[in-house]
């Protein structure tokens, strides 16, 4: 067998199983979701083709706009907290002047390995308006700022999103930290010789060179926010009413509680389109040039 053919066989052997697996587990179900979104279907009976009716209904459904808004808020909180705070912490932890760096890194990563249900329960207790930690802190500070964090129309989704952001910040922190560590030392040495300050150095060298990491981080934070489900399922069950709905929750309600699989599929299809759109935009505008050292 020639070298050319050997390479092709190796290529196939390594890629085909994964592609096959991805196609069966992800791609075909997505296609099926799009297909089912054009039907009036309860998940059990024979589907009836209704064209774009499910999509037209979506835009007239108050749950849709609440879900869209909440998904964007969720994504915003994840981006700001996980990437923003993750960057600051990674920069601080990458400095040799900081003592106990290893301990801090491990500590920040611990919530990531905890179960989402457990973390949600922990934050339910913290947010409890009657004797919860957060309200108690405000009371101890002499502030009359007592909130029903998970039941308030303007606080609920922020509180839930923060829980998720807090839990998974460690992932972005580790990614950014690793990326910082891969930046060649001589760049910093040159900046030091030129008299650049600590923050100026990081603003001009570290952050621009992290753009590829940010691209990946933005994609997982934004799609993670738009896809959020577990935290609201455990913490508020989407409520009170629909105030903490996201598209995934709307999809769950339609498919499993209202027996409207077709309508739920339309919500899922919009979610897929939304995630794809953000991914395309991020790929187009973030880290357009490949960085090589």
């Amino acid at each position: 067998m020639s070298e050319k053919w050997k390479n092709k066989v190796a290529l196939l052997v390594f890629t085909v199983p994964t592609l096959l697996f991805f196609t069966i587990i992800v791609f075909i179900p997505i296609l099926q979701t799009f297909q089912k979104s054009f039907f009036d279907w309860d998940g059990l009976s024979t589907p009836i083709f209704i064209g774009f009716d499910n999509y037209l209904r979506l835009f007239d459904d108050p749950d849709f706009w609440v879900s869209l808004k909440n998904g964007l808020i969720f994504a915003f909180v994840l981006v700001v907290y996980q990437i923003g705070l993750g960057t600051i912490l990674a920069i601080v932890l990458s400095s040799k002047a900081v003592r106990g760096r290893k301990w801090f890194k491990t500590t920040f990563f611990i919530p990531v390995v905890l179960s989402g249900v457990m973390v949600s329960q922990l934050w339910i207790a913290i947010y409890n308006p009657e004797g919860g930690l957060l309200n108690s802190i405000f009371a101890a500070l002499g502030m009359d700022y007592q909130q029903a964090w998970l039941s308030g129309e303007h606080t609920s989704i922020w509180a839930i999103a923060f829980t998720n952001a807090w839990q998974n910040m460690g992932i972005l922190l580790v990614l950014i930290y690793t990326a910082i560590k891969s930046i060649p030392e001589h760049l910093y040495e040159a900046a030091l010789i030129d008299g650049s300050s600590f923050w100026h150095t990081h603003r001009k060298i570290t952050i621009p060179l992290l753009s590829e990491t940010y691209k990946f981080g933005l994609i997982i934070a934004i799609t993670g926010g738009l896809n959020a489900f577990q935290n609201m399922f455990v913490m508020t069950n989407g409520g009170p009413g629909n105030i903490s709905y996201t598209f995934t929750f709307m999809m769950y309600k339609a498919a499993f509680r209202s027996n409207e699989y077709g309508y739920g599929s339309a919500a899922a299809a919009i979610l897929v389109i939304e995630c794809l759109l953000f991914t395309i935009l991020i790929n187009k505008f973030v880290a357009r040039e490949k960085i090589s050292y």
Binding site: D63, G239, P240, N242, I243, R257, S258, N259
Partner: peptide
């Protein structure tokens, strides 16, 4: 459909 709608909206009313 009626059941899920009333479940969500009574909670909103209480809120």
């Amino acid at each position: 459909k009626f059941k899920t709608a009333i479940e969500d909206n009574v909670q909103k009313l209480m809120l």
